[in-house]
Simulated assay, not measured.
Amino acid sequence: MRELILLRHAHAEPPAPGTEDFDRPLSREGQAEAEAAGVWLKKNGYLPDRVVFSPARRTRETVEQVLSVIGVVEQRAEARVYEATPGTLMQIVDDHRELGRILLVGHNPGLEQMAALLNSGQSGDFRGMPAGGIAVLRLPADALLEPGIAELAAFWWP
């Protein structure tokens, strides 16, 4: 078995005039959420082999806060994660299937739709993934991702 940890970026500042969505920073609340996510991951032993994340500022800052708690982990910014569909996210995760545990940090609706698709086989069968929320999915060791292949092992939100 291997594990896929999905982490939605924590709360970001609202869009400011002249600021691109991509460049929105975490709010103070978001910084605390991201730190709490790191505490939960560490406390529950979900330390990843690699972190793959969207290069958007709020996602990078979420990763920084999490790593400040769990310690240094190999990191890869992946442009395809920003505004990705569940299918694109599954391809990204498949690119790292040699790992026992990967942490994917990104955005909704793609993350929550992928979690639902992998677990239940239905991308519309989701209940929402709040900012800073974590879903841990257990997957067969060498299999490519497909609908219904995963078991939801844990779900947490700040």
Rank of each mutant, 00 (worst) to 15 (best):
Q75N: 04
M90P: 09
A16L: 04
A79Y: 01
F155C: 01
E33Q: 15
G30N: 11
N44L: 00
L145H: 03
F126M: 02
L26K: 09
E83N: 14
K43S: 13
R76Q: 07
H96W: 10
E74P: 12
A115D: 11
E98V: 12
L6C: 07
M129H: 03
P17W: 08
L99I: 08
I149Q: 03
G124E: 15
I134N: 02
A32F: 05
G106R: 11
F22K: 15
G110I: 09
W40F: 05
P130L: 02
N108Q: 12
L152W: 01
E29F: 01
E64N: 05
W40H: 08
P25V: 03
E33S: 11
A34E: 07
M114R: 08
E64C: 00
L145S: 03
A84V: 03
T19G: 09
H11K: 15
P17C: 06
V93K: 06
P15V: 14
H9P: 10
D95H: 09
A84P: 04
G128Q: 13
G121Y: 08
V66M: 01
A10F: 09
V93D: 06
L144C: 00
G87E: 07
V51T: 09
H96D: 13
V51D: 01
A79N: 14
D21V: 03
A84S: 06
L104E: 06
Q91W: 02
I134Y: 02
H96S: 07
T19E: 15
L26H: 06
P109L: 08
S68L: 00
R138T: 09
L47D: 04
H9Q: 15
R2W: 10
V73R: 03
M129L: 11
R58I: 01
I102S: 14
V69R: 09
T85Y: 00
E83W: 00
V69G: 01
R101F: 05
E13C: 09
G45M: 04
L67W: 00
W156D: 04
V66T: 06
G110T: 12
G18E: 10
G128V: 03
L6E: 10
D142A: 10
T59H: 05
E64K: 14
H9M: 14
W156F: 02
S123K: 15
L41A: 08
P158Y: 00
E98A: 14
T59Q: 04
A141S: 11
L145D: 02
